[in-house]
Amino acid sequence: MTSHQSAQTMKPATAAKKLGVYLEATPTEFQEGVVSRTELAALQSDPPQWLQDLRSTGPHPRPVVAAKLGISISGLARGGVTDALTTEQIDALKQDDPEWLRKERATQAEVRKETVRIKERNAERSGKAQEPRS
């Protein structure tokens, strides 16, 4: 008996997420089809023009918007940003530097500092745990 392996495929939403693009802005044939792992790898290694354009000008999905602004996705929601934004809109937000964005950036900076502190503490603890006892 021979086993027949079919190519693994994913929904367009999953592929768009892996590519870091906003699904609704992708071409119709991408949105309506399925994407194999091979096709995804090809899109990542040699992106077509539409993918290059989406990555450079958007609209960008919320995780990308949050990263470009230096805040969390929750911070976007607290700031009232619920839709995908273009690079131009993101740059305008950075330029305007509203109070909510400054606050969210400060919050994110504190979260990062705390994460580093905990990581260092855990590394120190694991180092002590490995020391031989006399």
Rank of each mutant, 00 (worst) to 15 (best):
K103R: 13
T2C: 04
S134Q: 13
I73V: 13
H4T: 14
E99Y: 08
I90Y: 02
T26H: 04
H60D: 08
R102D: 09
L51V: 01
L101K: 02
A106W: 02
K11L: 15
R102P: 01
V81Y: 05
P27M: 02
W100E: 07
V65T: 05
R105C: 03
A13F: 03
A123T: 09
V64C: 04
D97V: 02
P27E: 07
D83K: 15
S56N: 03
E24H: 14
A16M: 07
A92W: 01
V35H: 04
A67M: 01
A84P: 07
P12I: 10
R78N: 11
L69E: 03
K119S: 13
A15F: 05
A13W: 05
M1R: 10
K103C: 00
K119F: 10
A25Q: 04
Q8P: 08
F30Q: 00
R78H: 09
Q44K: 14
T2Y: 09
Q8R: 13
L76G: 01
A67W: 00
P61I: 02
V21G: 06
S72Q: 06
G75Q: 04
S3F: 11
A15K: 09
R112T: 15
A66H: 05
L40H: 02
D46V: 11
Q5M: 10
I90P: 05
E124Q: 14
Q5A: 10
E29D: 13
Q130E: 14
I118Q: 14
K17L: 11
N122Y: 05
G33A: 11
A92L: 10
G20N: 06
Q95R: 14
L19I: 06
Q44F: 04
R62K: 15
G80I: 02
R125C: 03
V64H: 00
Q52E: 11
P48Q: 06
W50D: 06
P27V: 05
K128E: 12
I118H: 07
E124I: 08
V65F: 02
A109P: 01
E110N: 15
A13D: 10
G58L: 03
G70W: 07
S45T: 13
L19F: 04
P12K: 12
L51S: 03
R78F: 06
V34G: 10
Q49R: 12
A16Q: 07
S56V: 05
G79F: 03
K128R: 13
L101C: 00
R117N: 06
S72G: 08
R105M: 02
S134E: 14
L76V: 03
T57W: 08
R125V: 11
